[in-house]
Amino acid sequence: MIMPEERIIVPKPDRRKKIATIITVIVIIVGSGIIAHFNIIDVFRNLSKGVSILKRMFWPPDFTYIPNIVKPMLETIRMAIVGTCVGAIIALPIAVLAANNFIKTKWLHVPLRFILNIFRTIPALVLASLFVAVFGTGAFSGVVALSVFTFGLVSKLTYESIEAIDYGQVEALISLGANKLNILRYAIMPQILPQYLSYTLYGFEVNVRAAAVLGYVGAGGIGQLFEFNLAWRKFGKIGMIIIFSFCVVMIIDLVSSSIRKRLV
């Protein structure tokens, strides 16, 4: 015999919160669009213009221009390499000082972190225009900008890694009479080195992309060529620069990320 099942009545969930959230999000998006003078009609009105420029950029591709791109591209990569190395090398000792489990007084790591946060909020392009004003145009300003940018990125990620290490290994070194430097060498470095190298490679990937636009403010690299061609409206050459940069960046990303996967 089948027992008649009792009908269960559950109160309906309160929908008001959900509806309020959706309305708020819509208001924020639409409001931002209005403030920024974004007009969807303009997008469609200029669509044909956009398509024609895209066509001039990529069809037919202007392969004869490649020899002119190689040299500035190499300069861009060199800038990224030097900038990454300098920034990452400075980042390591600073990250150690900024970690709260190595030096425990708040007087050091709280102000240090504040400064590091400032470094990280400044985009590489802004840094570059700043250094162009200081050192003049050229790759050197770009390298300095990338160094500072890498420093901010790598130091932050590294000090967070240091704080996440297995402290038991540090405790063991303390117990056998190791001083701070030995603790660093024998308990902390072995644990964070693979991560640090991985962050440095990641910084390199970001820097290659950043270095490609730095020339726009006169800080050397392929961006300078880009700006020159844009000024003369040579869209075919611009298209080739974009295709070439895209390929180089993609290859670097692929190689670098496959190394990073093996590191950690």
Partner: peptide
């Protein structure tokens, strides 16, 4: 001192772990 969690440095060789006992 030895610990429940061993606390040897796993990313180092056995030899370097033992030598670290001599740092002081």
């Amino acid at each position: 001192m030895i610990f429940q969690g061993f606390n040897i440095v796993k990313r180092m060789s056995v030899m370097n772990n033992v030598l670290s006992g001599r740092v002081a």
